[in-house]
Design a protein around this nucleic acid. Structure first.
Ligand code: SF4
Ligand code: SF4
Lengths: 152, 152
DNA sequence: TAGTATACGACCGTTTCTGTCGGAATTACA
DNA sequence: TGTAATTCCGACAGAAACGGTCGTATACTA
């Protein structure tokens, strides 16, 4: 529950890797997979999805591969997750088929939707570049409470 | 991915329902299940887990049932999820078995751990009482960026 | 003692996730 | 032209997680 799929995880790693090598015009799926030990064929499909979603540019053929379609700063983790795993919902409702039939009675649906928005906002605020740079932890702890006070 | 299990969902609903009926000394699992259309036996087990985790008090026998062990204000959504679904991690690493073998190479592990903390913080900041009261949406949008700026 | 309720564990069907395979289309280069 | 590198695409299979049910034991009340 509330766990990133490995696909999304791999996708983020790959994007970050590409962001760290702007000199190369393109890196093949295999290059990236080997760099981290990710199953190559699986990563290939992930990168294809990211390409289809417009986050990557791809070139086939020799010396081909993938490169960021936009600058790392402007690509959010949210977009990556969205591209790989589809629409982002923490609840089962509003999810077409296999959804939840309790939507009529359910009274926590709306507050949870706000939590959903909050988390999505956090994800949207994280760019690939943020992942590439490792800043010091800095102050945390506080302000989570503040954030929720405003969104709930 | 990043989706609440229905068990946790049901658990939150139940807790909220109990919070809304402080006059009753105890409500049976069936009472709650019927109120929302949740599978009774499933909810029963969920409430048992919550009891074992100390969030609920239970009394067997006639007129028995469950009641909040603490006041609604002091029970966080995080605790509920923790009690029902176990430790909270958005990544597959640091998860004992069936974890991730890439931990050595992985470079996004640490930033994601911070995201994990941020989300956990959001969940910790939400109490059962928050779910019971429905406040107006209020200002959102901003500050997600601020929050992450501090945590990342 | 009868009835109501929790407690607990085993079980099963479905879905989702992870990873693999096979083949087709594209491009570079010799 | 031919070959190797590489993206592209769909189908598939094994494994895990999830959602839910059942049976039974235990505890409490009247
Ligand atoms: S409707 Fe209520 S119970 Fe059903 S998924 Fe949405 S929140 Fe959870
Ligand atoms: S180690 Fe890296 S890849 Fe493996 S789960 Fe943790 S974050 Fe994801």
């Amino acid at each position: 529950m509330l766990k990133l799929t490995k696909k999304a995880d791999y996708g983020l790693m790959a994007l970050k890797f590409l962001a760290e090598h702007p000199e190369r015009p393109a890196l093949s799926a295999k290059d990236v997979a080997d760099a981290y030990g990710i199953p190559a064929q699986l990563l290939a499909k992930i990168l294809q999805q990211l390409t289809k979603s417009g986050l990557l540019r791809s070139t086939a053929g020799m010396n081909g591969g993938y490169a960021l379609a936009r600058e790392a700063r402007s690509i959010s983790a949210y977009e990556v997750i969205l591209a790989i795993d589809g629409p982002f919902f923490i609840t089962s409702c509003s999810k077409g088929k296999t959804g939840c039939e309790l939507t009529t009675n359910c009274t926590i649906k709306e507050p949870l939707a706000r939590v959903n928005e909050t988390i999505a906002g956090v994800l949207k605020s994280i760019s690939i570049q943020d992942l590439a740079e490792h800043e010091p932890p800095a102050a945390r702890e506080r302000n989570a409470r503040e954030l929720v006070a405003l969104t709930l």
